[in-house]
Nucleic acid binder design. Structure first.
Lengths: 190, 190
DNA sequence: GGTCTGCTAGACTGGCCAGTCTAGTTGTCT
DNA sequence: AGACAACTAGACTGGCCAGTCTAGCAGACC
């Protein structure tokens, strides 16, 4: 054989942590990966290290690209908004949130990095795009970073809370995203 | 003596759970309450029951009143926004969030109740107030409930994430609240 | 053929912890 | 005084689990 089972362990750990949080036992992860417990410890020095690795991956996965290609502002925001909502409000996004949030106090530095590489980076890019639109006279001239934060907040603010607390709302994704983007555009009309 | 130590246990449990989440041991809670472990079990059948009780209280505490007294819409929203942000983004609010969120899957029904009695109720009341303002011609006629959800999202969306991930932002509370409310009012201007 | 490395199953240690039990104390009510 | 209810300290059981250890297997490389 001599297969490197590192990846397999990582995937199994991700599934486990997403489902049960840090509670997941190493035995369970090993079982899920169809691997001996010892193998887990051959690749990761401790459960904490394994967890951190998984956390880094999860944070990276949430990141949504903002295609700068689309010339039309509204169209671009709609596409971005939809993608962002799918990532953050989907089962995996919510699971990741539930898994990571309670462990933040134990891994403060990592948490900050995770924020920076996902939400923080998205604010930055969105702000860039908005600033360009402001320059082009498509939006009222204002603090672009703040505007980006508002849009992200509207896209995933209360809806994330609802999902986290097992409350389901009915509205279709596309429609809700459009309403949000349009509300945002109204606030930032020239 | 014969003092009813129920309250004392509840308070200690709240502190413990806020600090360490469900991880807190019953021994620790008892120690904190200066009470024998047995006393804890005299008042609560299990750790889960104690946790649920604390959770209910925490959820209730987050609720912020919307003083209907203030005639001026902007003034009223500012006051509400400031209070809401203090509750939800303050150390206790964030701690409560961190404590409750990972346990939701184990207590789904309770979670829904908690949402309904805090955020849900706030959406309802805020929507009422906004609807009145729409009727009075102070805001553009639109879906008041949706508008309320947007305002709440803007007030605590990304900022909550920042706090949860140990990222600190500098802006003063009053100023940021005002910017948010004004952005909202722009989107809903007549 | 020998050795090295990645792997296996499964037993084991030591620690933590929910929940129970014992045996007794203090105060209250009648 | 006697009964009862709230409480105490602390020992104990049984379970879970991180991390280690043993002994051995399988393919790779020389």
């Amino acid at each position: 054989m001599t297969v490197l089972h590192r990846e397999r362990v990582l995937r199994a750990a991700t599934t486990s942590f997403l489902a049960h949080g840090y509670r997941s036992s190493v035995d369970e992860i090993a079982r899920r990966a169809r691997v001996a417990k010892q193998t887990v410890y051959q690749h990761f020095t401790s459960k904490d290290e394994l967890f951190k690795e998984v956390a880094r991956e999860l944070a990276a996965r949430v990141f949504s690209e903002l295609e700068s290609s689309s010339a039309d502002l509204r169209e671009g925001l709609l596409r971005f908004g939809l993608a962002y909502r799918q990532r953050t409000l989907g089962a995996e996004g919510i699971g990741a949130f539930r898994t990571l949030v309670p462990e933040v106090p134990r891994f403060k530095a990592l948490a900050r990095t995770m924020y920076a590489s996902s939400a923080g980076e998205m604010v930055r890019r969105l702000a860039e795009r908005l600033a360009a639109a402001m320059d082009a006279g498509e939006l009222r001239r204002d603090d672009a970073r703040f505007a980006a934060e508002m849009l992200l907040s509207m896209l995933a603010g209360l809806d994330r809370i609802k999902r986290l607390f097992a409350v389901d709302d009915a509205e279709g994704e596309a429609k809700r995203t459009a309403r949000i983007v349009d509300t945002f555009l109204r606030a930032y009309a020239t």
